[in-house]
Simulated assay, not measured.
Amino acid sequence: MKHLRIAALLAAAVLALLPAPAQAATYPDPVRITGQQIIHDPTVIRLNSGEYAAYSTGGVIGARLSADGRHWNDAGNAFASPPSWWYQYNDTGDPWAPDISYRAGRYWLYYAVSSWGTNHSAIGVATSASGRPGTWTDQGKVFSSETTDSWNAIDPAITSAGGRLWMAFGSYWTGIRMVELNRTTGKAISGATVHHLATRPDAPYAVEGPYILKRGGHYYLFASYDACCAGVNSTYKIRVGRSTSVTGPYVDSAGRSLLSGGGDLLLAGHGRYVGTGGQSVFRDRGQDWLAYHYYDAQDAGTPKLGLNRLAWTASGWPRVA
């Protein structure tokens, strides 16, 4: 018995020296919403009227409206019909991944037109005094890419920095890029330098859907990594890096460059919430909110709207709350 007790004590001592088993990452569920929940690649804003608007991929830029940010109603589309120039980029005039912002007394809605698997793509812009569906006037093409380019002009995201206007964009084709825009027209300046912000070291360089948020002395680049658009088989997840310059270099909290595959994991699929991505950030009553889509594993993989408040650590990094 003495030998057994000694053996047990030795075994316990060895186990105490071993590293603890890795714990699976846990993420908070999105806030509960009601009404029309189906959405893909959402961009959300609180309008000057006090109403919330969400625009998305689907339809002629699908629209949702809400009085409180929790109960959402289908509000049709941004446009009654596709502008004719969209058909240069796909046969159905199908727009993708809009981005809404407010500047110079009006709302600006950027969007992409393209076809799956090609970088023959373009980003356009429309303006509105109210930001409501049905009030948008298309202003035409902002920037484009062709099959000879190493970037893809989709997934626009607009940010201001130092009195200048910038547009991040990109998907695969070496990842996330950025160009400067003319503040008056909202379109790419002539001969704009195409800056490189993020990519992956492994083909097919699966990073896309940028969004850039200015907070304190840093610009934060949020992007979607891995595969979307496959329902419950989607592997989308959201990563983030930051820079003191809007054009980079962007690094994660360990100092790894986002041009070398870095990026802190902010949100990944969990439970019924599969393939979290297509994200944007909006500010409401002094709080930052992350808007994204997920594929509902309890509803045949239907894409739905996810909303989570963003909290910030003492060292200045976002986390999903």
Rank of each mutant, 00 (worst) to 15 (best):
A8R: 12
L18P: 08
P19H: 11
P19R: 11
P19M: 10
A20Q: 13
P21Y: 07
D29W: 08
V31A: 14
I33A: 08
G35I: 07
Q36G: 05
T43F: 01
V44F: 13
T57A: 05
A63L: 01
N77C: 08
A78F: 11
P83R: 10
P83T: 10
Y87C: 08
G93C: 02
A97S: 09
G105R: 05
Y110R: 01
Y111F: 15
T118K: 14
N119V: 02
H120C: 00
S128T: 02
S130K: 01
T135F: 02
W136N: 02
Q139C: 07
S150W: 09
S150L: 06
A153N: 04
I158A: 01
W166C: 00
F169V: 03
F169N: 02
F169P: 02
G175V: 10
M178C: 08
I189T: 15
H195G: 03
P204R: 12
A206F: 08
Y225V: 14
D226R: 11
C229H: 03
A230S: 14
G241R: 05
S245I: 01
P249R: 12
L265Y: 07
G269T: 04
G275M: 07
T276C: 09
T276W: 00
G278K: 02
S280K: 00
R283T: 13
Y294F: 15
P303Q: 05
A311D: 11
W312S: 05
A314T: 11
V320T: 14
